[in-house]
Design a protein around this nucleic acid. Structure first.
Lengths: 210, 210
DNA sequence: GATTTCACATACCTTGGGTATGTCAATGAC
DNA sequence: GTCATTGACATACCCAAGGTATGTGAAATC
């Protein structure tokens, strides 16, 4: 029938897929590894054989999700020629991707604590955050942004977008009647993304030379 | 000897203190509740009597730490008269407070996942994030910042500072040789705070009307 | 075709959060 | 003062779930 390598790859992929589903739905600590295995049609032993631990499977799921986000960001940026527009398009794509509940819970909420902040940051840097720092460096090189160390700036912007993405995907209106002044009826979904992008655009404008 | 209310308060405070120490040092999932109790001089039963669950104790610790941060932020802001300077001083105080490893691990890293992002955000809003949104509203009211909905902006800035604070307290130079171009020798501690504040200042400048 | 490898399955151990119940001193009623 | 009650814990136990050690049978190698 199937060769051993094929079977192995298939099982691995199936575990990864089911793991992603369950981790996204119930959160890392709400998931029992044996359930993932059962839903996949194998036993816990298979999961340990492939990934070594529950955290190991989760790490692989995180990596996959981050790659996907990075792909969307890069794809969005490609559609523009002007570096500044590329940055904005990439940011928007990141916010949209991060708003996807499946992506979000895994990469933004559980990722840092389960894997540890340092490891998570390294993975983030290897995928989507890299695009951000590269874009910033390019803009500094062309003089579109005032010269400055990129690392603090990358951290600030990356954090800003991470948090904003989580906020964007929140179930509905938190609306603690704090600032409902501007828009009486709740702005859901796209509108909030636009509002966030508008604010981000302003912040980024501050980086341009006067 | 001690009245029952006094004894109760004393035990509660002792558990809170020891809990904070251990949660900060080993992280939420690295801590066993029985150890906290043992170090406090009581048993696990006492902890459950006071806080209901391990997460309950952690929640109380988080609340306390957040109050402390809010206090430092408000204190720093009070030292200035100009609202814009108040904002900057508050931001700097937040970054400094968040860089404290004890504060950080509890409020910024473990908080969101253990308590859930929604509950964590509500607690954050009730303490330090509230100062931020109030300051932004005040600046909009006086015309120092262009009119806009404050919530997206608050989320962006809050996230930016959270992430930056975690980055600032990182053990040492991560230095993946990515952007070591600008500063050859590593800038540790205060210098990184200054660099972060400089970048944040630029970003905030973008909010002022042209 | 015998041997080895390896992708899993099975059985078991152990940690640790949670709970049910007991106990004894402080409190209040009389 | 005595007696009943409350309450702040201690003790003993349950059990879910991550991890491990070992077994097994089919594919790969020779």
């Amino acid at each position: 029938m199937a060769s051993r390598a094929e079977q192995r790859a298939e099982t691995r992929r199936a575990l990864l897929l089911e793991g992603r589903r369950q981790f996204a739905r119930d959160g890392y600590h709400g998931v029992v590894l044996e359930e993932i295995a059962r839903a996949t049609g194998v036993t816990k032993g298979a999961a340990y054989h492939h990934f070594g631990s529950k955290a190991g499977l989760f790490r692989a799921v995180v990596a996959e999700a981050q790659q996907e986000v990075a792909g969307r960001v890069a794809g969005a940026a490609e559609g523009h020629d002007d570096p500044w527009e590329q940055l904005l398009a990439g940011c928007r794509a990141f916010l949209a991707a991060g708003s996807d509940p499946e992506i979000q819970r895994i990469t933004l909420v559980d990722g840092p604590t389960v894997l540890g902040w340092n490891e998570w940051r390294a993975m983030d840097e290897a995928s989507s955050a890299r695009h951000l720092s590269e874009a910033l460096e390019a803009l500094i090189a062309t003089g579109a942004i005032v010269p400055q160390p990129v690392e603090p700036l990358t951290r600030l912007l990356s954090g800003a977008m991470n948090e904003a993405a989580v906020w964007l995907a929140r179930p509905s209106a938190t609306a603690t009647a704090t600032a409902a002044a501007t828009a009486p009826d709740d702005a859901s979904g796209e509108t909030r993304l636009d509002a966030t992008m508008a604010a981000l655009r302003l912040l980024l404008d501050g980086l341009r030379p006067r």
